[in-house]
Design a protein around this nucleic acid. Sequence first.
DNA 1: CATTGCGCTTTGTCCAGGACATAAAGGCGA
DNA 2: TCGCCTTTATGTCCTGGACAAAGCGCAATG
Lengths: 280, 280
Amino acid sequence: MWERRYGFPDPMRDAHGERLYPPAQVDKLRLMRRLVDHGQRPARIVHASAEALARMLEEHPGVSDAELASAADIAPMLKLVRLHRSADLSAALRQALLKQGLQRFVVETVAPLAQAVGEAWMRGEIEVADEHLFSEQVQNLLRGAIGAHDSVGRPRVLLTTLPEEQHVLGLLMAEAMLVPEGAACVSLGARTPMTDIPAAALAGDFDVVGLSFSTAYPVRQAIDALLELRAMLPPRIALWAGGAAVRGKHKRLPGVQIVDRLDDVLAALRNWRDTSSPEA
Amino acid sequence: MWERRYGFPDPMRDAHGERLYPPAQVDKLRLMRRLVDHGQRPARIVHASAEALARMLEEHPGVSDAELASAADIAPMLKLVRLHRSADLSAALRQALLKQGLQRFVVETVAPLAQAVGEAWMRGEIEVADEHLFSEQVQNLLRGAIGAHDSVGRPRVLLTTLPEEQHVLGLLMAEAMLVPEGAACVSLGARTPMTDIPAAALAGDFDVVGLSFSTAYPVRQAIDALLELRAMLPPRIALWAGGAAVRGKHKRLPGVQIVDRLDDVLAALRNWRDTSSPEA
DNA sequence: CATTGCGCTTTGTCCAGGACATAAAGGCGA
DNA sequence: TCGCCTTTATGTCCTGGACAAAGCGCAATG
């Protein structure tokens, strides 16, 4: 479609008329994708040179001042990710966990570091492999810490993502916030089909269903899916949603508890206990 | 394409000519997909009724006798998966791990149970959510157990999957086999781009790169990718590959160590140490 | 008797131009 | 300054044709 409309990309053709993309065009497309993911529109950037696009990425609005401030604490760890120092990164994370405790570790270390890693990837400063490495190390640590808690309390929370969303860190962070408060969390991991979610929620006697949506998730699709899910779930089961795609969408999502920041998970939990305990 | 060629599916159309698939056709397509994944060809099954397809699934060749035998031991756990008893399943797995130790747990419990769960899903006896739940519980346990070991020995092994392969259990099982033997494993999780793998292997001073391919992975694609990767890696870095898609393909993959069964991971490890220790 | 090679059949993907639903942006009035 | 509405931008779907590639069976060979 871009080819027809903007004249770019303009691939070569093989002997049978199929498109062959020169590396230079692929590189430019990768740069464009990052900018589009950040809100730029294709028509605005399609005619810029690769160098100009790279410059736009570096000048990108970036993290807010508040986040930059906390970034000072996590800078050393970000450097370890950049240098592929997996063993050192693992040790640094473990130390932070021991020092801060699970909940503070999530709020003060994992969340800002994940954001910083994502930003760095957006700017092309680190590679996919580094991002994967970071994600794995955090998963190892969080899963271990979560596993150390019992899960027998209330509410019983079912955590997962929709099929298009494959990022799991959001779920794990939520679980790590909830478990120390005595909630019983069960995570289905990523990519659970829509129709399976209400079935699983009913079968497992859950009080809350929690979904996570990362930046890349289409806002409209997230809202439609949440409203549909709300209609499929009985009223006694609460629906919580968190992540960039639903931030600030309270108004458009009646009956859905929006979790804008990690702290809000705890607020939602208190709220649930206040409104539900009388009947228990 | 099937619509043009076989006359099925035959969707309704909305006011603007776009296809609308009645639930019955979607159900039949789901049954067909399972059969196709098991090697049936579309033309053979497209004209059968939904009932006939369901019968074909149940009569499907299924597990071998040897696997059935060991399945007797895991039957109780499979039942817990079916009944969505997440807490009991978690406890049963934990107990098996303590009793058997990490390596035996992987070989005797996790692997056959994963296979049984996959088979049950294929037959429609359990839902996607159950499979996810099982996978999550196993991940929690294995990651915790792996994290308890140091990773400072040799060989240094980099584990991951290619972009089309999202199953992570194979990697975790391999890691769980290797770590108790004193190998230093780093997993990048699933879906690492081809070009990032050699870069990460060189940057991290690795001796071995290990890839996992599940049943659904196209055999041809796996072989091409492995040969390409072999050419991109320096000779001193070994390339190991495991999973259903590469089983028995030794001949077509010179220079690649094929891991047919979990035990072969240990054989490959011994082999590497025998051939590499003299120079160390 | 197992195995390799070859040709036929089956199956999936690509091509092109047209149409239109839907999201974002900009203008206008309250 | 906010919210609504029009206009523009953007992505997805449609159709029918063509062809590459994967799978299957048969024949020939060690």
